[in-house]
């Protein structure tokens, strides 16, 4: 039996990713808007979108090891979609922070980015994800040539910055951030050789 996924399988897998990512976000914003998301819906939304972005990025990083183990190369076809949704959630996270937490105090946004290390770090990760998103299409890939891979290797830095942003933002309970850092380190350990090469 040939191992692999048909085009139909890929279609449904992508449909599932769209449905879960958009559906979950819509439902959560609906609940926050109608005051059903805990005592402080602003905190609820910031938490949901932040964790959501991190989850999607980790899923994105699991694809290439998954392809290697399963020898099903077609999994690669959903990686870009997962990456784009990771940025989409990061966009919701930043937009919700500006709209609902800062309530459009742009001055404060600038000073917070400069003054608060965990926000500086989170914003830096956001900028990297933005750059990766803008260059995610085929045309950009062709235009950038070999530099495209170099640019997209920055995803590892972004993931590290997100982990740092997360653990730095909590008051004292670091259990969950540590679990996430553990998962990230595990995923990075699968590409140890590549990362060491990048380092040099």
């Amino acid at each position: 039996m040939v191992r692999g996924l048909s085009r139909r399988n890929i279609f449904w897998l992508k449909a599932l990713i769209h449905l879960l990512s958009l559906g979950w976000a819509s439902l959560t914003y609906y609940r926050a808007g109608t005051d059903q998301l805990g005592g402080d819906p602003v905190e609820g939304i910031l938490h949901f979108t932040g964790i959501g972005a991190f989850n999607l990025l980790l899923l994105c990083l699991i694809i290439s090891p998954l392809v290697r183990w399963s020898r099903i190369s077609q999994f690669m076809q959903v990686r870009r979609l997962l990456g784009l949704y990771a940025f989409f959630y990061a966009l919701l996270h930043l937009a919700s922070y500006i709209l609902f937490e800062l309530q459009l105090e742009w001055q404060l946004l600038l000073s917070e980015i400069v003054k608060r290390p965990y926000i500086t770090v989170g914003f830096s990760a956001w900028i990297i994800l933005l750059a990766l998103t803008l260059t995610s299409n085929k045309a950009a890939q062709r235009r950038l040539g070999r530099n495209w891979q170099k640019l997209h290797n920055w995803v590892y830095l972004a993931a590290g910055l997100i982990a740092l942003h997360y653990i730095w933002s909590v008051k004292s309970d670091i259990t969950q951030p540590l679990v996430y850092i553990g998962m990230l380190l595990l995923l990075l350990s699968f590409r140890k050789d590549k990362l060491l090469k990048l380092w040099r």
Partner: peptide, 21 residues
Amino acid sequence: PRWSQARERRITTGGLFSSNR
């Protein structure tokens, strides 16, 4: 050290769109 104390979010009635800073 990690966040501003200049303003606060008053938790009252209503959801996300009626939060009060």
